[in-house]
Amino acid sequence: MQWRTIFAKEMSEDWRNFKWVWVPLVFILIAIMDPITTYFLPKILDSVGGMPDGAVFEMPEVSPVDAIMMSLTELSMFGVLVTVVISMGVISGERKSGVAELVLVKPVGYFTYISSKWAGKLLLVLTSYIIGMLVSWYYVNILFGEITFSDFMSLLFFYGLWLVLVITITIFYNTLFKVPGVVGAVSIGTIIVMSILNQIFSHKLTWFPNSLSSHIGEMLTTGEISGDLWGTSVVIIILVIVLLVSSLFTFRGKEMAG
């Protein structure tokens, strides 16, 4: 009951500051930007000119899989950035302004508070992500070639896990730090360090969360869900649970101390 109240409050707040309008739009832009510019690149080069007469410039053929993977690459950068920016103040901002105290003075459990906020951001980001990818899928189908529905659904599901992890990391830091800017910077820093680790040890740590995209790419080309993809997903789900439980403890500790 309380859980739904806080969740509903979170939803109405995101409506009032227009997050439900601009976040989906931004995700659409992020998802379709790269496939569409790639499609138009030969024409842009033609119209800009500057090519010497008789110069032949072969454009590499872009497969549908390459095209939809471009969307994932962009989402991994800008999508993650937007996700962190909209969730960095969820709890820390309320603690800074004192709203958190007002809520927690009532008989609201810490876990209710954290998990309802987590779920609220999850719903917003995942909805935006699904809309963005649907639009991208539509364009890839008409401009580059077909990606089957079942392939697309698996891609949607598996990559969604990565965004869930990003939100959970940000929520975790929300319980550690009181300043939204610090939460954002540390979350982005963590994700960058993770991706560097992934690049260095990718041959050894095949189940590392950041290797998710490359496993998804493999899945789209081979048409089969590899064991590594399942392994990576399990690692991500475990990480999400561990982070949620730890944020409960750090938050409880902080609130007791403060």
Partner: peptide, 24 residues
């Protein structure tokens, strides 16, 4: 015609973003 179909969504998104931005 195909080009227009591809570019139209961009224009719509930009307009909506601007209008909502102005309301905000």
């Amino acid at each position: 015609e195909l080009d227009l179909a591809v570019i139209a969504p961009f224009i719509i998104i930009q307009l909506v973003l601007m209008i909502v931005g102005l309301i905000a």
